[in-house]
Design a binder for these strands. Structure first.
Length: 468
DNA sequence: TCAGCTCACACATTTGAAACGT
DNA sequence: AACGTTTCAAATGTGTGAGCTG
């Protein structure tokens, strides 16, 4: 299995004609996401963002805040975030820079953060920015609060997922539009390593005001940091690389760092070499290695953009994934991206019509329940029993020790479970979702209680990025 | 010995209930 | 009585630094 980056060169050219946008498909595929406060993110990114992870869970700072457009106002969507390993290495901070310290540790249980407003109509998501302020990171693999579990000294980046779904159940069968923003990548740490990051955090995080030089607590930090403020705050302008994927997760979920298997020997050294080469942008070099980047930091050329689409698997003819690259061609998002500096936002727009394969449906045809006759009309949702084959397949694969699991759209719903069970409290008769999870799901917390609402449900992993 | 982790701490903001005024 | 504003305490979020651990 290949990582997305690895796959990228293998796919090029325009989308197939079957993917050409019809009126509905256009609506489906025209979702645009912009990252709020990209300048702040970039400022951190240039130094090498670090995020503290603690046992009880720590918020991110800067926290993820996005704007959405292009959604169907009256269609319901679910927003999710998960964290994806940047690479297969563990790092250490050594003499003012990050160095590869070995192979990554086995991945912790995967968690996906579900935005508490989910599901909500497109108008809701679009009327104001969507904040993931409450998302917390932890290094406690036994965490029972639903926080996203990460390894310290490992690099990650958040992925934002939009799913058109009337309820949480239909998440399983819907096409995910996935967005990532390169400047949001970070290193998970239990204590800050780079004093520049510490200072940035203190300067920008209101909760840390007490540690500011002009604050009442300056005595504590007096001899800790001596960095000219202007130094760290100067923003190196560089063109954003924003990767867009339209996918159903399962197949892009790396179970280990297999995508790097072939490079394990060489990569660390190469990364260090490139770290020097690309230092002006970021202390991180490796992340750029597969990217097609313009050399002009101020250039308006669009960064290479690629798109993936993964299909809802069908029992009979399960397609692992489909991947389309739109990379080299300028896109609406390109112009958006190039104008980011003016708008103060990093944006990305999906141009891939959502086409999902469902049983007995031609994948080239729009799904009726997603691309209905009217964007605002009643939408047919597939019933669970339509897809028991998919579920069984998933379970069978999950049961294989050490096997590669092909489909890991994670859902707390069993196929036998009726729709609407999450609508309110009920007897705790439904098994926790973990029976479907990936290799590590034995580590997932088995909650005995039912899911009375979205917030509770959100603590369960929807997908496993750790399985291909 | 040392890098990485945990914990208690002081200081900050946020939140929500109570009190108050219109 | 209903509603809006203000106040205040508790909860929560933050980085620090000492101590612990492997």
């Amino acid at each position: 299995m290949q990582s997305i980056r690895d796959l990228k060169p293998n796919f090029s050219g325009p989308p197939p004609s079957s993917m050409a946008a019809g009126p509905d498909a256009y609506h489906q595929g025209n979702i645009r996401m912009t990252l709020e406060d990209p300048e702040l993110w970039k400022t951190f990114h240039e130094i090498g963002t670090e995020m503290i992870i603690t046992k009880p869970g720590r918020r991110m700072f800067p926290h993820c805040k996005i704007n959405l457009s292009g959604l169907i106002p009256c269609a319901k969507y679910i927003l999710l975030v998960d964290m994806v390993p940047e690479d297969g290495f563990r790092y250490k901070w050594n003499k003012e820079k990050w160095e590869v310290a070995g192979k990554a540790e086995p991945q912790p249980p995967c968690r996906t953060y579900l935005h508490p407003d989910s599901p909500a109509p497109g108008s809701h998501w679009m009327k104001q920015s969507v904040s993931f302020l409450k998302l917390k990171l932890t290094n406690n693999t036994l965490d029972q609060h639903g926080h996203i579990i990460l390894h310290s000294m490992h690099r990650y980046h958040p992925r934002f997922h939009i799913v058109q779904a009337d309820d949480l159940f239909s998440v399983r069968w819907s096409v995910f539009q996935t967005f990532t923003f390169p400047e949001t990548s970070f290193t998970a740490v239990t204590a800050y390593q780079n004093t520049k990051i510490t200072k940035l955090k203190i300067d920008h995080n209101p909760f840390a005001k007490g540690f500011r030089d002009e604050g009442t607590n300056k005595k504590r930090r007096a001899n800790k940091i001596s960095l000219p403020p202007d130094d760290v705050l100067s923003v190196v302008s560089f063109t954003l690389e924003v990767n867009l994927m339209t996918c159903v997760f399962s197949d892009f979920c790396p179970s280990s760092y297999e995508g790097y298997d072939g490079e394990e020997v060489d990569l660390p050294k190469r990364k260090e070499d490139e770290a020097v080469k690309e230092e002006r942008y970021s202390p991180w070099a490796a992340e750029k290695e597969h990217s097609v980047r313009t050399d002009s930091p101020a250039g308006a050329d669009p960064r290479d953009m690629y798109n993936t689409e993964q299909l809802v698997p069908a029992p009979a003819s399960y397609q692992p994934y489909r991947f389309h690259e739109y990379g080299k061609s300028p896109s609406p998002s390109s112009s958006i991206g190039s104008s980011n500096s003016g708008s103060g936002r990093s944006s990305f727009e999906s141009r891939v019509p959502d086409v999902a394969t469902v049983p007995n449906h031609d994948s080239s045809k729009p799904r009726t329940h997603e691309i209905g006759p009217s964007p605002c009309g009643p939408q047919h949702l597939p019933t669970p029993q339509d897809y028991t084959g998919v579920l069984n397949m998933t379970m069978a694969q999950a049961g294989k020790p050490g096997g590669v699991i092909g489909h890991h759209i994670y859902s707390p719903y069993g196929a036998e479970q009726p729709l609407g069970q999450w609508g309110g409290p009920g007897p705790a008769q439904y098994p926790p979702p973990h029976h479907l999870t990936a290799d590590y799901t034995t580590q997932a917390v088995h909650h005995g209680y039912h899911h009375g609402n979205v917030a509770e449900w959100s603590q369960y992993p929807l997908f496993s990025y750790s399985c291909w």
